[in-house]
């Protein structure tokens, strides 16, 4: 009984912080999502409107478009980061000249604030002064202008995210790869397995939990990207890079529609949880074994 109480006392600060900064705001946002509330309007009171905010969002073309762009962005960014991050992690398991220097340089983007990343990439992609449009024009004759070309703007936001977050994936996968036991790889080589077979049947299953954890972290981040994209494109041209985080910001701050913004936030949280749960079920959840004996029983 005494150790039980000590355990709860030691957990108490964490639970308190989680409660104050995680659980209470969640329930407050959930509460707001069922209300119409504009604190700067003539009537600043909260008015209960049931599920009307949710009814509104399933017909809101702007929201659905921003959700589609966000899902596309998250898919391309996360898949690319996992593939490139894995390849870099494999490269870093080998010895080569300048490995320490490369690892340091490669990890630098991680310590740069997203808002700074966005402004730096904006400078690099501005047509008259940016280095990227300059060389694209010089080498390929391509005029890059993310202020008017929606596809180019979208691709540049994905590339910026890959540049910023691939080092995180590399570090987590590198930690997973170097902690793998050597025996299965040696045995596979003795049995004559080629590199692809070793990767597919040994490495990938063994680092699957690390990949899944990394995908969860990156997916959650990608679905709520705001500051980088805000600095780079401001959501434009048109609404081509107005991802759902930016859309919520525009609803909540310039329009001060707190109820509707809360409803969209809840739905984005819901979609994030659903996607993470589906990934968990698809990749690592223990399956029910339905044997003949069990079926007969």
């Amino acid at each position: 009984m005494g150790s039980n109480r000590t355990g709860w006392l030691m957990l108490a600060p964490t639970l308190l912080i989680l409660g104050v900064f995680g659980i209470v705001p969640f329930f407050y946002v959930l509460y707001l999502s069922f209300h119409q509330w504009n604190p700067f309007a003539a009537n600043p009171n909260m008015i209960f409107i049931g599920a009307n905010n949710f009814r509104r969002l399933v017909f809101d073309g702007e929201f659905l478009t921003s959700l589609w762009f966000t899902l596309k962005f998250a898919f391309f960014a996360v898949v690319s980061e996992i593939i490139i991050g894995y390849m870099l992690a494999q490269m870093l398991t080998r010895d080569f000249y300048g490995k320490g220097f490369f690892r340091t340089i490669h990890t630098l983007p991680l310590i740069v604030a997203p808002i700074v990343v966005g402004s730096v990439w904006r400078l690099m992609t501005t047509p008259s002064i940016g280095i990227i449009p300059y060389y694209l024009n010089k080498w390929f004759g391509y005029q890059l202008n993310i202020g008017s070309d929606a596809t180019a703007a979208f691709i540049i936001t994905v590339i910026m995210d890959i540049w910023h977050w691939t080092p995180l994936v590399t570090l987590t996968l590198l930690a997973a790869i170097v902690s793998l036991p050597k025996d299965p790889f040696e045995q596979a080589q003795i049995d004559g397995a080629n590199r692809w077979q070793i990767f597919w049947h040994i490495t990938l299953p063994m680092i699957r939990p690390a990949i899944l954890a990394t995908v969860f972290i990156r997916l959650m981040d990608a679905l709520r990207t705001v500051d980088e994209v805000w600095m780079l494109t401001g959501g434009g041209p048109g609404a081509a890079t107005r991802f759902v985080g930016l859309h919520i910001w525009k609803i909540v701050f310039p329009k001060t529609d707190y109820g509707y913004g809360s409803a969209i936030s809840i739905i984005v949280l819901y979609l994030t949880l659903v996607m993470c749960w589906l990934l968990y079920v698809g990749l690592v959840a223990p399956r029910v074994r339905r044997s003949k004996v069990n079926a007969d029983a």
Partner: peptide
């Protein structure tokens, strides 16, 4: 319970739409 709540929300949104 978690799966039930997921499906509850999905069904409600689908129905409203």
């Amino acid at each position: 319970l978690f799966i039930g709540i997921y499906l509850f929300v999905a069904l409600e949104l689908f129905w409203m739409r």
